[in-house]
């Protein structure tokens, strides 16, 4: 971590630069979402746009964490503590997603009708 005056002065320039970078990425993320020429994937919002938006957000988040939150020169322990939170957060999301996407199937095979995993007598295919 920056501890001497000179180092802090140097770091301040970095902070400013990162701030501007974040501004830039913000403009980029709005642009790809609203400007028609920059619309990736199919027309309008789709999965490609979601992935691009999240990638940009992740880059921004990483910059904030690494530079503003000093994770680029932080102690090992901090990583251990924080990553534990992130890992478990990912578990929560992934396992729940798995549970949602693997329902008991009614009737034969996987059809559009029983994709949601909630039993609906009207939609259930008849055997």
């Amino acid at each position: 971590m920056a501890d001497s005056v000179a180092e802090i002065q140097k770091a301040k320039k970095l902070y400013l630069f990162i701030g501007l970078t974040l501004f830039f990425f913000t403009v980029v993320t709005v642009a790809v979402a609203t400007v028609e020429i920059l619309d990736f994937g199919g027309r309008g919002f789709d999965h490609v746009d979601a992935v691009i938006g999240l990638i940009i957000a992740s880059i921004k988040a990483s910059l904030v964490m690494l530079i503003f939150m000093h994770l680029n020169h932080e102690k090992k322990l901090v990583y251990q503590l924080f990553i534990m939170g992130i890992v478990l957060g990912v578990f929560l999301m992934v396992l729940t997603a798995w549970a949602f996407s693997d329902p008991i199937r009614y009737g034969k095979g996987t059809t559009e009708a029983n994709k949601s995993g909630f039993y609906d007598p009207e939609k259930a295919p008849q055997d």
Binding site: L95, W98, A99, D102, P103, I104, R105, G117, F118, Y119
Partner: peptide, 13 residues
């Protein structure tokens, strides 16, 4: 989710 076996989770999960 072993508290939730009855919620219609599929065999894999």
């Amino acid at each position: 989710a072993h508290h939730m076996y009855l919620t219609g989770m599929g065999p894999v999960i």
